[in-house]
């Protein structure tokens, strides 16, 4: 049994699964804040599926990139649960969890999450047998930078995630690009169960202290510091 948590976007997503199949999931797209909703959602899900904590063999968590506050709630919760239960943990990038449910498209697949400050986090994927392969690094930047990248690719593409929806107007101007709907706005807790299961099978898990959010952006203070003349 695996417990999966993703809080990289306004959504609080929790799922439990066995052998890579989802037994139950809670996805609150909006409502209470992460810290308020997460622990009750975990309790509810375990109770409703009749799964006890001692049946859990591992914890999976979405590591972003995404909203810093949400990520910290999810990653801290997952790390401490793994510590208390003495079970392994795996971190999976939340952008992968946006892309994975759309893996059957023959097109170039792009996941983009809202990074606030008129920026998006994004990554690009291609379908490979049995899953997805990421092309290039996880990135953060102005939607215009992603638009430029997509135009450079110039091929049929599918763009998913709340960053795509938020800057819809900018992306709709790109040729041969289709936007996935709100159903694909947030990382899928179900995808996390599937992807994490494969990692656990390969014993690619970590110690709780090794799992940290993928911030991609430094603190403003550090950025300012480097701008100062020496």
């Amino acid at each position: 049994m695996l417990l999966a948590i993703d809080t990289a976007t306004p959504q609080v997503g929790v799922a439990v699964g066995v052998d890579g199949a989802v037994v139950g999931r809670v996805e609150l797209a909006r409502g209470q804040r992460h810290a308020e909703a997460l622990a009750p959602a975990v309790e509810y899900l375990l109770r409703a599926t009749g799964i006890s904590l001692d049946q859990l063999a591992g914890i999976a968590v979405g590591t972003g990139p995404g909203l810093f506050t949400g990520l910290r709630v999810g990653v801290t919760t997952a790390r401490v649960m793994a510590q208390v239960l003495r079970i392994p943990i795996v971190g999976v990038a939340s952008l992968d969890l946006v892309a994975y449910p759309l893996r059957h498209t023959p097109r170039l697949l792009v996941a983009a999450l809202d990074a606030r400050r008129h920026e998006v986090f994004w990554a690009t994927y291609r379908t490979v047998p049995g899953g997805l392969q990421r092309v290039g690094d996880y990135a953060v930047g102005d939607p215009a930078e992603l638009v430029a990248e997509l135009e450079a690719h110039g091929e049929e593409a599918l763009l998913a995630g709340d960053g795509a929806l938020r800057y819809r107007a900018e992306f709709e101007a790109v040729d041969r690009l289709e936007l996935a709907g709100p159903e694909f706005a947030a990382p899928s807790a179900g995808a996390l169960i599937e992807l994490a299961h494969a990692r656990f099978e390969r014993e690619e898990f970590a110690q709780p202290t090794e799992v940290v959010p993928l911030y991609l952006r430094r603190s403003d203070a550090e950025i300012e510091w480097d701008r100062k003349p020496a």
């Binding site: 975990v42 506050t69 919760t77 401490v80 649960m81």
Partner: peptide, 19 residues
Amino acid sequence: LAGALLVGVSAAKAVAVCR
């Protein structure tokens, strides 16, 4: 500090849920 507090609160609740 909001972000700082949330780490401690989340950690404590994780312990509470697990135990």
